[in-house]
């Protein structure tokens, strides 16, 4: 049973990382922009948050907790938003192809993040990977260690604040997209920018804002990976990148609805970690091949959802109509 609870806990911690990425991408895609730069933005955000925490910790003996939180949080938001701004300038203003720009942003962001992390280690003479331990404790601090509610506490309260922030953000985004004028305007742009333009909506302004804010939210995903999952360790493996792609997949899985993103991300993370727990839960010994096959599941499930959604042709579960297309006012 404890293995099962372990699986749930891992899924919620990992799911939060995917959730931020998927929420950011949902906002971007609602404005009609398919940003394939999510993995890059995730790494950029994670790196910036880490760098801010690490440098501040190194610069003073008794870092202020409030400043640590503020610096790392803002750095992740701002740095990723800058990445989003590059994408936006190229695709909205210069009308470059969105897929190509997004892919370039992915390799740019991953490159910047990995290089920056290694550079920091070198600069401060840290052997191996650098660690911002104090900031890590901030992001992993939870209520359960104070209250000690046993198993319900383990399952519900043992996570850092980002986990709850992600859920709140999903609900807020749902309300924003469906209940506010700005949200409806944004969706109108994603469906048909020319009509929205004719209705007097400033298309470019909305696109810039939705893409940059979406990118900033993706940055929180990296922040969550580095501090909540990694407790402040900077890791240079490809995990963050793979999670970014899972976030892109989850947007399709959720059929562009923020509320679906909540359970979808936990489900994806559960499927992702299944290989680690399934042996203990069912008391069987898994060979390496089965681990490899089990790790394939999230991607296969996404493909199935993609196909099923297009077979059903339900209007509510289709992507925004103008997704991936640049808007040029004078084009007919």
């Amino acid at each position: 049973m404890s293995a099962f609870f372990g699986l749930i806990q891992s899924a919620i911690v990992y799911g939060t990382i995917i959730m931020f990425g998927a929420l950011g991408e949902t906002l971007t895609e609602k404005g009609g922009h398919l940003n394939l730069g999510v993995p890059g933005l995730v790494v950029m955000g994670g790196f910036a948050g880490f760098a801010a925490g690490f440098v501040y910790e190194k610069s003073t003996d008794s870092p202020s907790m409030f400043l640590l939180l503020l610096f790392s949080f803002l750095a992740a938001l701002v740095f990723s938003a800058l990445g989003g701004l590059i994408y936006c300038f190229l695709t909205v203003t210069l009308k470059a192809n969105q897929n190509v720009t997004g892919l370039a942003l992915t390799s740019f962001g991953v490159g910047v993040g990995l290089f920056g992390g290694a550079y920091l280690s070198k600069l401060y003479g840290v052997a191996g990977s650098a660690k911002a331990a104090v900031t890590g404790t901030l992001y992993t601090a939870n209520l359960n260690s104070v209250l000690g509610w046993g198993i319900p506490g383990d399952l519900l309260l043992s996570y850092g604040f980002l986990t709850y922030l992600a859920v709140v953000l999903a609900v807020v985004m749902h309300l924003f997209l469906n209940k506010t004028r700005y949200g409806l305007n944004l969706k109108a742009i994603g469906e048909n920018p020319a009509t929205a333009d004719a209705a007097g909506i400033n298309v470019d302004k909305y696109k810039y804002l939705s893409t940059c804010i979406g990118a900033a939210i993706c940055g929180l995903s990296g922040l969550c990976y580095v501090f909540q999952y990694g407790s402040g360790n900077w890791s240079t493996n490809n995990n963050m990148q793979a999670l970014g792609w899972l976030a892109v997949a989850l947007v399709i899985f959720s059929t562009w609805k923020p509320l679906n993103v909540i359970w979808g991300s936990y489900l994806f993370a559960l499927l992702y970690w299944l290989y680690n727990y399934i042996g203990t839960i069912f008391e069987i010994k898994l060979t390496q091949i089965w681990t490899d096959i089990l790790q394939m599941i999230p991607y296969v499930v996404t493909i199935i959802v993609l196909v099923v959604a297009s077979v059903r042709e339900k209007r509510e579960s289709q992507p925004p109509s103008s997704l991936g297309l640049s808007y040029f006012r004078e084009e007919r």
Binding site: Y299, V300, V307, S310
Partner: peptide, 19 residues
């Protein structure tokens, strides 16, 4: 069925990696 090929081919990358 009109399934989006951009995301389909992208996902197949990861399936291939696991294979």
């Amino acid at each position: 069925f009109g399934a989006n090929e951009t995301l389909f081919t992208l996902m197949l990358n990861y399936v291939a990696i696991q294979i």
